[in-house]
Structure formats: C-alpha cells, structure tokens
Computed example of a mutant assay.
Amino acid sequence: MTAANALRLLSLAAIWGASFLFMRIAAPALGSVWLAGGRVLGAALFLLLCAAWLKRLLALRVHARHFLILGLFNSALPFWLYSHAAQHLSASLMAILNATAPLWGALIAALLSRQALPARVAFGLFLGVAGVALLVGFTRQQLSAPVLWAVLACLGAALCYGIASNYARGHSEVDAFSNAHGSMWAASFLLLPWLPTAVPAQMPGWDVAAAVLALGVVCSGVAYLLYFRLLAELGAAQALTVTFLIPLFGVLWGWLFLHEPVGWHTAGGALVVLLGTALVTGFNPRVLWRKTELSP
C-alpha cells in the first residue's frame, strides 16, 4: 500500500465516520424520509456532474433493474433506516453497529452457497452478537422501545449492506462508477413517493441544510469515488480495512462535536464487534503491514 492509498483509506474512514455525525444533526429536524431522500439526491446530482466531466454515459435502460436492486439495498433502505435510528441513538453507537455489515454479508453468502460456516466464521458471528449485546445492554438509563427499535434499524441497515455486497459480487458486468451513479438515481426514484407522507413541520436551519449537503456530496458522492479508487488499486481485501476504521472516527467525531460520552461499554463493545468482524473476514493486520512495507 502506497502512502497515497493509505491517506485515501484514512480519508474514507473519516468521511464515512462523519456521516453518523451529520445524520445525528439533521435527523431530528427533517425526519428519516427527507434526510435519506436529500442524501441520495445530493449524491446523484454530484455524480451526474462527475459523469459529465468524465463524459461517461449512464445506460439506465439497459441496467434499470440492476440499479433498482442495488439502489434499494445499498442506499435507499439503509439510509432510511440509519436516518430513523439517528433520532434516538448516538453517532458513536450507530458507527459501531455499522461494523456488523461484513458479519451479515458472510452469513448471507453461507446461506446462498448452502455450505456450513467454518468454525472461525461462526465464532466471529457469535462475537459480533455479543458485542452488540454489550453495547446495548449496559446503556440501561437509555433503554426504551424507541431505542431498541433504532438499534434494530441499524442492524437492518447493516443487513442491507450485506445483501447488496453479495448481489453486486454476482453482477460484475457493470463498472463501479456506473453502479454508484445509477444506484443513487434509483434510490432517489424509490424514495420520492414517500416524501409527501412526512413533510417537515418547518424549514430546516443552515446547520441542517449543511449536514444534508455534506451527507450527499461528501459522505456519499466523494466517498464512493474514493472507495472505488481503492478497490481498483488495492483489491477488496485491503479496501475492506476501512470497516475497522469507521467506528474509530465515528466515536471520535461524536465525542468531539456532540460531546457524546465514551464509556467502557462503548470501547469494549466496539472491540468485540471488530474482533468478530476480523474473524469473519479473515483480516490479518500483520499481512497488511508487511504489504505496506514492501510497497513503493
């Protein structure tokens, strides 16, 4: 891994970690539907400008069904679920729960292949569940039905990412940039009919508008471009290390800007979840470090 790619990886983790901060700011004012809709539409418009600059046409008619499926599970539904959760959970907790996405992806892959899970993967899934239980179980002063539903919404969003990753793996005929661009327009189309059902009571302030703009342009549009660049240059295995960095930045931004407390259960739960994710994905930091040392 070159120094440039290491910087891209850290930047991507910092950006995606900040998405939970921005959702926490905007969700109480906009609600889940309008926040998710604003995010995907902002990303779609940004990627449209990029496509015009790069002179890349989008074959919507040819791949319409593919973009709709990817847009539903990779953007519209998880963004909606996270936007709902952001009205009840801290940015730190959402960022950590997001790290369960590879666990869901591994479980879905095993179900699709109808093969038994290896012992390492099964133990990793167990640790992931234990980490979530540790995170939620020791926030007794905050436990309520809305909070528990919000936790389930976060896990449901991570499950959507697991579905999307398995689906995209079997449809490599569409290039990465087109997947990002087309799926964002598809997600906008899917969320559009729901907007009249949940109109915000009042116009949002500049801080909310800035948070939505940052979510769309930076946390979705720019982040996708960074991620696909890493995929092309490093491959999926090393690009996956961003999964382990996002919770660290999510907790940092929540503590720094929203003054969210970081108790022992937050650190302990995050560590258990990430350890489970490492076991499931086969992540080995020593191998990554050796590759970094040998890279020019």
Score class of each variant (00 low, 15 high):
Thr2His: 10
Ser11Trp: 01
Ser11Val: 11
Ala18Phe: 08
Leu21Thr: 05
Ile25His: 07
Val33Glu: 00
Val33Gln: 00
Gly37Arg: 01
Gly38Phe: 00
Val40Cys: 04
Gly42Phe: 03
Leu48Glu: 13
Cys50Ala: 15
Ala52Gln: 14
Trp53Arg: 13
Trp53Asp: 10
Leu54Val: 06
Ala59Leu: 13
Ala59Pro: 14
Ala59Trp: 07
Phe67Met: 09
Leu68Trp: 02
Ile69Cys: 08
Ile69His: 08
Pro78Gln: 03
Ala85Cys: 10
Leu89Val: 08
Ser90Asp: 06
Ser92Tyr: 03
Thr100Arg: 01
Trp104Met: 07
Ala106Glu: 00
Leu107Tyr: 04
Ala109Ser: 09
Leu117Ala: 11
Gly124Leu: 12
Leu125Thr: 08
Leu125Ala: 00
Leu135Arg: 01
Gln142Gly: 12
Leu148Glu: 11
Val151Thr: 07
Leu159Gly: 12
Ala164Tyr: 06
Ala164Phe: 02
Asn166Ala: 06
Asn166Leu: 09
Arg169Ala: 15
Gly170Leu: 04
Gly170Cys: 03
Gly170Arg: 14
Ser178Leu: 09
Ala180Val: 08
Ser183Glu: 08
Ala186Asn: 00
Ala187Ile: 08
Pro193His: 06
Trp194Gly: 05
Leu195Glu: 05
Pro196Ala: 10
Val199Arg: 10
Pro200Asp: 09
Pro204Glu: 08
Val208Leu: 02
Ala210Ser: 14
Val212Ala: 11
Val212Gly: 09
Leu215Gly: 06
Gly216Tyr: 04
Val217Pro: 08
Val218Ile: 15
Gly221Glu: 01
Val222Asp: 03
Leu226Thr: 10
Leu226Ser: 04
Arg229Asp: 13
Arg229Phe: 11
Leu231Glu: 10
Ala236Gly: 11
Ala239Asn: 13
Thr241Trp: 15
Thr241Pro: 02
Phe244Lys: 02
Leu245Lys: 05
Val251Asp: 01
Val251Leu: 04
Leu252Ala: 14
Gly263Pro: 01
Gly269Asp: 03
Leu271Gln: 05
Phe283Ile: 04
Arg286Lys: 14
Val287Arg: 14
Leu294Ile: 07
Pro296Leu: 13
